[in-house]
Amino acid sequence: MQVFSCPYCGPRPDAEFHYIGDADKPRPERSCSDEEWAHYLFMRANTRGAARELWVHRAGCGRWLVVARDTETHEVAAVTPMNAERAGT
């Protein structure tokens, strides 16, 4: 029963959100090697402790969010719009 403060909707229960994956995972160019592509597709940081995660506010505004969260204590440090983080890409 975590609460995420959606920058668009305000604090909402975790049931409205859906976890996607690691927040910091640049998409490789098509010219990358098979190994680099497999790494992008499958490898996970799976951090124990302070992690940066990608979530979508599925039952809310539908926007994509970067959640800085501790995977041991579930404390949330920050929730920011994904797009703001990726501005310029």
Partner: peptide, 13 residues
């Protein structure tokens, strides 16, 4: 419980 976790405890939902 669909949020990554090492807490070894789940939520009521």
């Amino acid at each position: 419980d669909r949020s990554p976790s090492y807490a070894q405890r789940g939520g009521f939902r």
